[in-house]
């Protein structure tokens, strides 16, 4: 009963992953990968005539790792805070609540490529509505180059990601909020405890398990981000993430060897992050357990 599913997953997940790892140790090019020769660790790190080569010796690789980490930490934290705030608002009873909830889902429903294009247009330096609005409000004197300036383009990528994924966070938190018993809040209200205190002392600890799951999902997702960065800022070194770097090596530079080596590193980093998170979660669970 399980065999068909397991067989398909072996073919489309395990086998390609194994092939990628193997290619990382060869001098293959995707055009004629059949006659690739094993070259050991050379795609990762090698020294020829006093000069270091390989992914690990490439400053752009380390910059991509840094970019990915900055992107992940910034976007996941912002999404978490905003997601909880939006969920708290949606948890209240007010007229038109169903419509507002529906509206919040819209950014999530828009394909990533489309949202990247939409924002690229709104952030356009000459004709974009964002610069026009900022200038109209007197906040800036000259138009900003949102997708070209090294610092601003990172801000733009993070901003668009937060816009796109906050609904996911808000929905998961809202689902957790709705499972909480209402009588605790009654009791807190009767005792005259300030709502902010109630949130930090009662609500937050109760929704923590759901929140942690959502954060884990989003973190692992952010570490492999590709579509948004690639469509919004192409292969710009300032925002290049690990996935964008690996694809550039593989496809644009037609170097299956180094590209696969970089892809393997991306896999290892994400697997390591997952393992760390799971271990931390388990240790914490044991502390809190009976």
């Amino acid at each position: 009963m399980i065999a068909p599913m397991a067989l398909v997953l072996l073919c489309v997940a395990a086998w390609p992953l194994g092939r990628t790892i193997w290619l990382g140790f060869t001098d293959a090019s995707l055009a004629g990968a059949g006659d690739a020769a094993f070259i050991g660790w050379e795609n990762y790190y090698a020294v020829f005539g006093g000069q270091a080569f390989g992914v690990l010796a490439d400053p752009q690789w380390w910059r991509s790792v840094g970019n990915t980490l900055v992107f992940t930490v910034a976007s996941v934290s912002l999404e978490t805070v905003l997601g909880v705030l939006v969920a708290l608002v949606l948890h209240q009873r007010f007229p038109g609540r169903a419509w507002v909830r529906a509206a919040v889902l819209v950014p999530w429903a828009i394909p990533t490529v489309v949202s990247a294009k939409m924002w690229a247009w709104m952030l356009n330096d000459q004709f974009g509505v964002v610069n026009a609005a900022l200038e109209g409000m007197g906040l800036i004197d000259a138009p900003l180059a949102w997708t070209a300036d090294p610092l601003l383009s990172m801000v733009a990528v993070i901003g668009v990601d937060v816009w796109k994924t906050t609904p996911f966070m808000a929905l998961l938190v809202l689902a957790a909020l709705e499972m909480l018993p209402r009588d605790i809040y009654e009791a807190a209200r009767v005792d005259g405890i300030h709502p902010v205190r109630v949130f930090f002392r009662v609500t937050l600890p109760l929704i923590r398990p759901a929140l942690v799951v959502a954060i884990v999902f989003r973190t692992l997702d952010a570490l492999r981000v590709f579509d948004l960065v690639y469509v919004l800022t192409a292969n710009s070194p300032a925002t290049m993430t690990m996935s964008v770097y690996a694809r550039r090596e593989l496809i644009d530079f037609q170097s299956a060897g180094t590209g696969s080596a970089a892809a393997t590193l991306v896999f290892l980093i994400i697997a390591l992050a997952a393992a760390l998170i799971l271990t931390a979660g388990r240790l914490r669970g044991r502390e809190a357990g009976p």
Partner: peptide
């Protein structure tokens, strides 16, 4: 755990497949 695979990690293997 397969759902955590970064797509780029299987890209070259998938291409050959």
């Amino acid at each position: 755990s397969v759902s955590m695979f970064p797509q780029v990690a299987v890209l070259s293997g998938m291409f050959l497949l």
